[in-house]
């Protein structure tokens, strides 16, 4: 669900939704680097950026896109999917996840504005122009998320705090600056993808349970695995795109170690594993067969996207497509809901 770009913002949840985590570790100089023959584009000036808003509707769409508000909506869709899959009552969980996603992801965009300038100049210009407003929005939305989570009880609160805690462990420069014994998890090969996938899958699955005061059932476990594997794939997709750049600066990622071709196969294998888990859940009756069918439809979409990794130059479109997997699932479920 979360958009990733060459100058490195992968998120907890990578392109699959979750807590965004800057990938500046690979370009820690703070300067935008050219990657794989890419050309650094300066961020458009404010005068240029104001040209986006020729009418109010266009302004709303631009803000929705560049502020990452759309990612918050996708995150809410994911929580609603869990709610439906586990037959939970409708709670405040989707709102909490949406607010947290918005807060953490916009915060990440602000922090990475300089390094993103080369590959995403329009978004960077938007972020820089409205930085002050966005910072207040980040603070208020996370504050609101925490306050709402408190109403869900201690477990809901703990899960809501998780993204912030993981962000500090994963990407913040603060802990390494305090103690030399601590190494950021994002700098550790493969650990970053697993941590991102785990934290995000846990948040998406457990928060609606906590709000509904429901137990962790086998169906919840299946949804956790489904999100975990899906997020892992979507974290690695931008790594495939960035393989050349990562290799240049000595960062080891799956595509750097295995190569783009083999990585694509591995990711397709993970998608296949996800499909197996879902089919097994449907066969054993852990999840409703109709629901699994919708998930498999989304997975098929994901497989198509994954198969195009490294084979297309339209990387932004590919990233957005990967983020849209859960929207496909939701749309597939709409006729049944009606």
């Amino acid at each position: 669900m979360f958009e990733c770009n060459k100058t490195r913002c992968v998120t907890i949840g990578g392109c699959h939704g979750g807590i965004p985590v800057p990938r500046r570790g690979k370009y820690m100089s703070g300067e935008a680097k050219e990657v794989a023959g890419g050309v650094s584009n300066p961020a458009p000036s404010q005068t240029e950026s104001t040209q986006w808003f020729t009418n109010p509707a266009e302004g709303v769409i631009t803000a929705f896109r560049y502020s990452s508000a759309y990612l918050a909506v996708i995150a809410m869709v994911q929580v609603l999917l869990v709610t439906a899959a586990l037959s939970l009552e409708t709670t405040l969980a989707p709102a909490v996840v949406g607010l947290v996603t918005f807060a953490v992801y916009v915060g990440d965009r602000i922090a990475d504005a300089d390094t993103d300038a080369a590959t995403n100049p329009e978004r960077t210009a938007f972020i820089k122009r409205y930085e002050r407003v966005l910072q207040h929005a980040v603070s208020l939305s996370y504050g609101l998320a925490i306050a709402l989570a408190v109403l869900g009880g201690p477990v809901a609160l703990a899960i809501t705090l998780l993204p912030g805690v993981f962000w500090i462990l994963y990407a913040s420069e603060w802990l390494p600056s305090v103690t030399s014994h601590f190494r950021r998890l994002k700098d550790v090969l493969l650990v970053n993808s697993f941590v991102v996938a785990f934290a995000w899958a846990l948040t998406l699955t457990v928060l609606p349970l906590a709000f509904a005061d429901a137990p962790f059932t086998p169906a919840a476990a299946v949804m956790f695995v489904y999100f975990f594997l899906g997020i892992f794939v979507n974290v690695e997709i931008p790594n495939v795109r960035d393989a050349a750049g990562d290799s240049e600066i000595g960062v080891e990622t799956l595509p750097v170690v295995l190569g783009v071709h083999r990585t694509r196969h591995v990711l397709l294998g993970v998608d296949a594993l996800t499909a197996s888990v879902l089919v097994a859940a449907a066969v054993t009756g852990v999840l409703d067969a109709m629901f699994v069918g919708a998930l498999l439809l989304g997975l098929a979409f994901s497989l198509t996207v994954t198969s195009l990794v490294g084979r297309t130059s339209k990387e932004e479109l590919l990233t957005t497509a990967a983020e849209s997997e859960y929207v496909v699932v939701a749309l597939a479920l709409v006729p049944f809901a009606l």
């Binding site: 910072q135 207040h136 980040v138 603070s139 208020l140 996370y142 504050g143 609101l144 925490i146 306050a147 408190v150 109403l151």
Partner: peptide
Amino acid sequence: FATIVIGVAATLT
């Protein structure tokens, strides 16, 4: 509720 919202927002600021 308002206290928590404001408190967390101020903490992040």
